[in-house]
Computed example of a mutant assay.
Amino acid sequence: MTRRHFPCAALLALAALPAYAQDASVATPQGGWNRAALTDRSDELAVNYPYALIDRGTQKSRRMIQGHLRQMAKKRPFHQLVVNGNPTPLYTDDSGRYARAYSFGAGSNSVEVRAPDGKSIKRVQFYEVNTGRPQAVIRVIGAWDDNQAEVDLHVVTPDGQHAFFGHPVLTNGGGLDVDTVDGPGPENFVMTAPMRGLYQVWINYWGNFGSDGYHFDESTRQRPIITTRITLVFNENTAKERREEFVVPLRSIGELTLVKTFKF
């Protein structure tokens, strides 16, 4: 399975960093994000922690955020990767490398690494030029705090279509652009031209995923309760941006929770 680096605009600025910033790195972007149309890196080996991302063919706009932690937390709390204000626990391989996928929108974006005590130790700010690609009007982000738990985001749109890992692309223009089985998310649902009506957002603790594949042994869970964070972003990266966040506990495999019903 290959990993691909997808287009994003050039790096504009690197925020002021404390003296201990050398304890973390963000290897991508470096000197600007690579545009896939100009630089094909589809065959390049990349960090694979802890399991291979599954590319279901709907992740055309995702970018790989990669880097390295020199000093890794051996127990909770762990470092956090914060993308556009959305925090995700930052798990690494044994050497401290990490890789996370994210689908950025046009406008100002940020990638930040925070220490377990909440201090910012690395921050990259860049601007995604609007190249004519539609902007996300509705974005739903799901993340959780157990790196071997297979948690799935589900969204039902007003016309009754259901976006989830088995049906990621909807005919109404919405869909999941990242389905993550290799860590604590994020998973993203995006619509650029949403229809009017009621939307439902669900979160499901489907099972676990380890070196031998999927399984349903709850004794391997790292925490008695998995905490999920679901973020709704409306009119992202515009003056009208509005956000809502929900924290939902998941206690057992198979648990399916309605997070939010909203009218657009």
Rank of each mutant, 00 (worst) to 15 (best):
residue 110 S to N: 13
residue 134 P to I: 00
residue 99 A to T: 14
residue 5 H to S: 07
residue 138 I to W: 06
residue 181 V to T: 13
residue 219 S to C: 09
residue 153 L to E: 00
residue 246 F to M: 07
residue 18 P to R: 01
residue 145 D to I: 09
residue 136 A to V: 04
residue 60 K to I: 07
residue 180 T to Q: 09
residue 32 G to H: 10
residue 96 G to H: 09
residue 52 A to L: 14
residue 81 L to N: 07
residue 243 R to T: 14
residue 57 G to T: 11
residue 256 L to H: 14
residue 251 R to Y: 05
residue 120 S to V: 15
residue 16 A to K: 02
residue 53 L to Y: 15
residue 194 P to I: 07
residue 136 A to R: 13
residue 99 A to M: 14
residue 89 P to A: 14
residue 70 R to N: 05
residue 128 E to C: 09
residue 9 A to K: 03
residue 66 Q to S: 14
residue 109 N to Q: 13
residue 259 V to G: 05
residue 232 L to G: 07
residue 84 N to L: 06
residue 122 K to A: 11
residue 37 A to R: 06
residue 243 R to Y: 03
residue 79 H to N: 07
residue 138 I to K: 06
residue 253 I to Y: 05
residue 216 F to I: 03
residue 171 T to W: 08
residue 226 I to T: 04
residue 82 V to D: 04
residue 42 S to A: 14
residue 219 S to T: 15
residue 197 G to Q: 07
residue 150 E to A: 15
residue 42 S to Y: 11
residue 189 F to C: 08
residue 202 W to Y: 12
residue 60 K to W: 10
residue 39 T to R: 08
residue 97 R to C: 10
residue 71 Q to W: 00
residue 78 F to K: 10
residue 217 D to I: 08
residue 233 V to M: 06
residue 41 R to H: 05
residue 156 V to H: 01
residue 128 E to Q: 15
residue 48 N to R: 10
residue 109 N to E: 11
residue 199 Y to V: 02
residue 32 G to Y: 08
residue 153 L to F: 02
residue 163 A to W: 03
residue 215 H to Y: 08
residue 198 L to V: 09
residue 34 N to F: 12
residue 182 D to H: 13
residue 248 V to G: 01
residue 44 E to H: 07
residue 67 G to C: 03
residue 168 P to L: 02
residue 252 S to G: 03
residue 95 S to N: 11
residue 81 L to S: 07
residue 214 Y to W: 06
residue 240 K to T: 03
residue 222 Q to G: 12
residue 250 L to V: 02
residue 30 Q to I: 04
residue 231 T to R: 06
residue 41 R to M: 11
residue 252 S to E: 12
residue 221 R to D: 02
residue 160 G to V: 14
residue 235 N to G: 02
residue 90 L to G: 07
residue 14 L to Y: 06
residue 182 D to W: 10
residue 217 D to S: 13
residue 151 V to M: 07
residue 78 F to E: 04
residue 56 R to L: 12
residue 92 T to D: 14
residue 247 V to H: 00
residue 167 H to N: 15
residue 16 A to R: 03
residue 23 D to Q: 08
residue 217 D to M: 10
residue 102 Y to M: 09
residue 175 G to Y: 05
residue 93 D to Y: 06
residue 23 D to E: 08
residue 169 V to W: 03
residue 110 S to L: 09
residue 100 R to W: 11
residue 155 V to Y: 02
residue 100 R to P: 00
residue 206 W to E: 08
residue 73 A to R: 01
residue 64 M to G: 08
residue 92 T to K: 15
residue 176 L to E: 09
residue 105 G to A: 12
residue 210 G to Y: 06
residue 252 S to N: 09
residue 108 S to F: 04
residue 11 L to W: 05
residue 158 P to H: 02
residue 185 G to P: 03
residue 243 R to Q: 14
residue 76 R to C: 00
residue 251 R to T: 14
residue 185 G to E: 04
residue 115 A to S: 15
residue 55 D to A: 11
residue 93 D to T: 11
residue 203 I to M: 06
residue 110 S to F: 05
residue 37 A to K: 03
residue 114 R to S: 07
residue 148 Q to I: 02
